[in-house]
Each structure stands twice: as C-alpha cells, then as structure tokens.
C-alpha cells in the first residue's frame, strides 16, 4: 500500500528531516510511527499527503508514484486517503453533519446521496445524535471523532492520523485507537503517528521508530 524507497527530505540548505528511509506497509496493515518531535514523523505524513515532495527517493502509494503526480492530480489523489489531524481541522462555522459531508461534496456527490454515508460515518464514531451540533459545542474527544468520521466518510483504502490522541486523556485515547482498529479490521490500511508510547505498547501493532530522520527500528506486531 505504501512504499518508501530511500526517501530523503531536506529543508533549506542544511537541515535534513529525512535521511533516506525505506519501508513498506502492506494492504490492510495497521502501523504506528513514533519518535520525538523532529524525528521526521510529520515529514512522512506531509510527503504521504503530497503537501511536500521528497528531495530524493521514491514514494509509491496504492500504485501511484507520488513523484510523477502532477499538481492538478493531487486533489484526486488526496480523495483516496483519509487524514485525521491532531487539531481536528474542523470548520467551526458549520454543523458536525456538514463537516463530515465536506469530502463528499468536494467529490461532487449530491447531498441526498451523501446523507446516508455521512450518517453511517457519524454512527460509526457514535455521534449520530450530535449531527446538528456545531463543533464548538463538542468536547475535545468528540471533535476528534468528528474528524475521524470525516476522514472515513468516503471509505478510503488508506487512513493516516497525525497524533490523533494528542490532547486527550488516556481513556478517550484508548477509545479513539479502538475506532482505528475497527476500521483496520474491515480492511483499511492505517498509519498512525503518535508519541503515546504506553498506549502503542498495549495495542501490539507494528511500530516504526524514527530518530533524527532515520528509521531506527521496525518492530513487527507482537
């Protein structure tokens, strides 16, 4: 599903965020990526979402060579992956329902068609009863679940998450992770960047450890 081949990313002249890392993530895997801030986690995610291009090396995602992707194709590529952000990136001037429907509207789906899928996604994260609420009225954990519902509403084959439990207490964090496991169970490939080592250790999935732009450990699922 994801293949990094000697990928390097340099910012400006000197600073090397990624120093030629290689790894593969198979279809249907669930993988954690850890490391201190500055280790290169967010660089990997930015490269995967085409926010940035690698300085060297090759990245293949679901058969797409990201280097060969033209700027005009990037939006269509992004529609195939779901992304969950640490700060949710919800739009606070519209309802939970409209936030979740956004990817479908962007893809050109009629609202009537979209409604069934939006409700299904909200139901999955347990927030169907809050569909009319504004994000500001929700707790942090609920906002994150809305973000997840938005990421999965178009049933992406690949789900990326950047510190999805960053600001949540352990109980809520565990709930969120369980949600990701649920999606993984139905075949979605999941890659989660997180520094919550205790939680990761409990969950027993494959872990990629990054340090200073290098892949220092690739621990298979226990």
């Amino acid at each position: 599903m994801i293949a990094f081949e000697h990928v390097g990313k340099r910012y400006g002249g000197r600073f090397e965020a990624l120093a030629g890392i290689s790894f593969r993530i198979g279809r249907g895997e669930m993988v954690f990526m850890t490391g201190h801030s500055g280790a290169g986690k967010s660089s990997v995610l930015k490269l995967l979402t085409c926010l940035e291009r690698p300085s060297r090396g090759r990245i293949i995602v679901a058969g797409h060579d990201l280097n060969a992707l033209h700027a005009s194709q990037v939006p269509f590529y992004r529609r195939q992956i779901g992304v969950v952000f640490q700060n949710h990136q919800l739009l606070f001037d519209r309802s939970v329902y409209d936030n979740v429907a956004l990817p479908l509207i962007i893809q050109g789906m009629l609202p009537a068609e979209a409604s069934r899928r939006v409700r299904a996604a909200l139901d999955k994260v347990g927030l169907l009863h809050r569909e009319r609420a504004l994000p500001i009225e929700l707790s942090g954990g609920e906002q994150q679940r809305v973000g997840i519902a938005r990421a999965v509403v178009n049933k992406p084959a690949l789900l990326l998450a950047d510190e999805p439990t960053g600001n949540l207490d352990p109980q809520l964090s565990a709930d969120i992770m369980r949600l990701f496991e649920d999606f993984n169970r139905i075949g979605t490939t999941v890659l989660i960047a997180s520094h919550d080592l205790a939680l990761i250790a409990r969950l027993r999935h494959r872990v990629l450890r990054l340090r200073e732009g290098r892949l220092v450990a690739d621990e298979e699922a226990a």
Binding site: V83, Q89, L91, L102
Partner: peptide, 16 residues
C-alpha cells in the same frame, strides 16, 4: 484561510 487549508487537505481542487 483555515477553511481553504482544510478543504485543500481533503481533496478540493483549485476550482472548488
């Protein structure tokens, strides 16, 4: 700006 960033991230084209 924020809204533009979000919709760009989830696959909106420039035209959108």
């Amino acid at each position: 700006r924020e809204e533009i960033e979000v919709v760009t991230l989830i696959g909106a084209t420039h035209a959108f």
